[in-house]
């Protein structure tokens, strides 16, 4: 009985300790970042591997999710004679929820796991230790550009996801199912508010981007430097990120749209 309590306590302490450590890592990397000009090429490279390489999967998923929403929305709303509202439904669900959440989940799987594996490999092959011995802080050289790239890429990817999704929805409901395009767009415009809906969605994406890259980078830095350890950390990145995204999404939604 006491053993179990002690084990629980030990777990709790180690979780809090690693949370503290992770916070220090992110603060150190994000806010102590001098010479942004000199480090620009590093950031560009990370934007490429984190952002550009995720673009295809984000666009394709966004298109299909938008098309499915258009189709489902139409079949439900047509029963009430309100098929013009399909634009509103597609746009609101994408902009408020699906774009940030699905983008973040895909991002965790595509870019987050790659980040963990990359940093874990750098640790296993002693590249991080080697940087330190050369007199370069790996937090600044390796971690900071990756965190910034994640932070910048996620909102962009999420916006692209939403925009592509809405045009996918329009394609299905307007071009294929014959909803009148004027009311499709104007009903949408009447119900979507730029500040309340679009900006809040972007804020969600920003938060998710920070959380996912943070988890990914920390898992990479803390992994056991063997191939087994890297594999475990990569899995952990995806699992932890997904859970955090969904939990945070509820919290953020409650703060932004709910009256809780």
């Amino acid at each position: 009985m006491f053993d179990m309590l002690a084990a629980l306590g030990r777990q709790g302490i180690s979780y809090i300790a690693s949370l503290g450590k992770a916070t220090l890592v992110v603060i150190h990397a994000l806010f102590v970042w001098p010479q942004p000009i000199k480090n620009m090429p590093l950031l560009l490279k990370q934007l490429y591997s984190v952002g550009v390489k995720s673009l295809l999967i984000i666009t394709v998923s966004g298109l299909f999710i938008g098309m499915v929403l258009g189709l489902q929305g139409y079949t439900i709303l047509v029963d009430f004679g309100s098929e013009q509202s399909v634009g509103q439904m597609v746009a609101l669900s994408l902009v408020r929820e699906l774009a940030p959440v699905v983008t973040a989940l895909l991002f965790a799987g595509r870019a987050g796991s790659a980040l963990t594996a990359e940093i874990g490999l750098m640790k296993a092959t002693e590249q991080l230790a080697s940087l330190e011995m050369i007199g370069v802080d790996p937090l600044r050289r390796v971690v900071a550009p990756r965190l910034w790239a994640g932070f910048i890429s996620m909102p962009i990817l999420s916006m692209i996801f939403a925009a592509v999704g809405i045009y996918g929805g329009a394609l299905v409901s307007v071009d294929w199912l014959g909803v009148y395009s004027g009311s499709f767009w104007s009903v949408m415009q009447a119900s979507v508010d730029f500040y309340d809906d679009v900006l809040n969605g972007i804020i969600k994406a920003l938060v998710f981007g920070l959380v996912v890259t943070w988890i990914a980078v920390y898992q990479g830095l803390e992994c056991i430097p063997t191939s087994e350890g890297i594999a475990q950390s990569t899995t952990r990145t995806v699992v932890y990120s997904s859970l955090m995204i969904l939990a945070l999404d509820f919290v953020l939604t409650a703060l932004m749209f709910g009256d809780i």
Partner: peptide, 19 residues
Amino acid sequence: LFELRKKMGMLFQSGALFS
């Protein structure tokens, strides 16, 4: 410490070249 490390070179077991 970083200053002092500039006066030290280290050859790692795996080489640790930046890939």
